Simulated scan of single mutants.
Amino acid sequence: MTSPAPLVDIGANLTHESFAKDVDAVLGRAHAARVATLILTGTDMAHSEQAAALAHRHDGLYATAGLHPHMASHWNSTLESAMRALHTDAKVVAVGECGLDFNRNFSTPAEQERALEAQLGLAAESGLPLFLHERDAGPRMREILCHWRDDIGDAVIHCFTADRETLHGYLDLDVHIGLTGWLCDERRGHHLREIVGDIPAERLMVETDCPYLLPRNLPAKLKGRRHEPALLPWIVREIAHWRGESETTLAAATTTTARRFFQLDEEQ
């Protein structure tokens, strides 16, 4: 499927090992589908550096740099200094992926909060927006963001999957929302379908989170494949349906929002 308007995939894990052998072909398919701009997710120092390096090799690619809450126990002053330096790279357009994940607790909640607060400080220092992960930690995340709100700029909760109350709590803090193929999953996406219309167009962005979360609304010939940026138009189609608007309108609005959020040059 080709998007009716250029799209920005705000969360693509192209440094994942599954893309190691064919990233050029993946990017070719993305461009053919009119997924014109990709934000590559950095989840630790190594992947953040890899994402930035890949972004330097290709037009239309940018990167985030941060430490995922699963690995928050690794945060230390050396890592903080390295992240601070990477945030000065012209291709790094956000601090993250950072946040809280109280669902799996691979790092303790205390370690997660410590790493998150440190990265909020880096965002305040650099002026970069925040690319945030939150799972089963909505109340605590909102408390922390409320405390920091006057010091940080824009922030997005990527791959939002929570309930209406959590959504409106983020919107009240002027936080952006990233939606993925979770909405396309008839097994678990029902509650999202009922609330996507609550998200203002200027707060909504779209992402694949590839290679994870392969959409379940794909035609049979595409099912079972690895998720990749070229499949983003299928996610846009599903979101547009549940918002009661055209795919063209949604594609154009999310791209405008993403370009403003990540401070991307219009000509890119």
Rank of each mutant, 00 (worst) to 15 (best):
Gly28Ile: 11
Gly28Asp: 15
Gly28Leu: 14
Arg29Gly: 05
Ala30His: 08
Ala30Gln: 08
Ala30Thr: 09
His31Thr: 09
Ala32Cys: 07
Ala32Val: 06
Ala32Lys: 15
Ala33Gly: 11
Arg34Asn: 14
Val35Trp: 10
Ala36Gly: 11
Ala36Pro: 10
Ala36Glu: 15
Ala36Val: 05
Thr37Tyr: 03
Leu38Thr: 04
Leu40Pro: 04
Leu40Val: 05
Thr41Met: 07
Thr41Pro: 11
Gly42Gln: 10
Gly42Ala: 08
Thr43Pro: 09
Asp44Gly: 05
Met45His: 14
Ala46Pro: 04
Ala46Met: 06
His47Gln: 14
His47Lys: 13
Glu49Thr: 06
Gln50His: 05
Gln50Gly: 02
Gln50Cys: 03
Gln50Ile: 01
Ala52Leu: 00
Ala52Arg: 05
Ala53Gly: 04
Leu54Pro: 13
Leu54Phe: 06
Ala55Lys: 04
Ala55Arg: 01
Arg57Phe: 03
Arg57Leu: 07
Arg57His: 05
His58Gln: 06
His58Lys: 12
Asp59Met: 02
Asp59Pro: 10
Asp59Thr: 07
Gly60Ala: 05
Gly60Met: 03
Gly60Cys: 02
Leu61Arg: 12
Leu61Glu: 11
Leu61Trp: 06
Leu61Ile: 08
Tyr62Val: 03
Ala63Gly: 09
Ala63Gln: 06
Ala63Pro: 11
Thr64Gly: 04
Ala65Gly: 12
Ala65Tyr: 09
Gly66Cys: 11
Gly66Phe: 12
Leu67Ser: 07
His68Asp: 12
Pro69Val: 08
Pro69Ser: 09
His70Gly: 08
His70Lys: 13
Met71Trp: 14
Met71Gly: 15
Ala72Val: 07
Ser73Tyr: 10
His74Lys: 14
His74Ser: 09
His74Met: 11
Trp75Ala: 00
Trp75Ser: 00
Asn76Arg: 04
Ser77Arg: 00
Ser77Tyr: 00
Leu79Glu: 04
Leu79Trp: 05
Glu80Asp: 15
Ala82Ser: 12
Ala82His: 08
Ala82Gln: 13
Ala82Tyr: 01
Met83Asp: 08
Met83Gly: 05
Ala85Tyr: 03
Ala85Cys: 06
Leu86Ala: 12
Leu86Lys: 13
His87Trp: 12
His87Leu: 15
Thr88Ile: 07
Asp89Glu: 14
Ala90Asp: 15
Lys91Trp: 01
Lys91His: 02
Val95Lys: 06
Gly96Asn: 14
Gly96Arg: 15
Cys98Glu: 12
Leu100Ile: 11
Leu100Val: 08
Leu100Glu: 11
Asp101His: 03
Asp101Phe: 05
Phe102Val: 08
Phe102Glu: 07
Phe102Gly: 06
Arg104Glu: 13
Asn105Ile: 02
Phe106Val: 00
Phe106Gly: 00
Ser107Asn: 04
Ser107Glu: 04
Pro109Leu: 00
Pro109Arg: 00
Ala110Pro: 14
Ala110Glu: 15
Ala110Gln: 15
Gln112Ile: 01
Arg114Glu: 07
Ala115Lys: 02
Ala115His: 00
Ala115Leu: 06
Leu116Cys: 03
Leu116Asp: 02
Glu117Gly: 01
Glu117Thr: 03
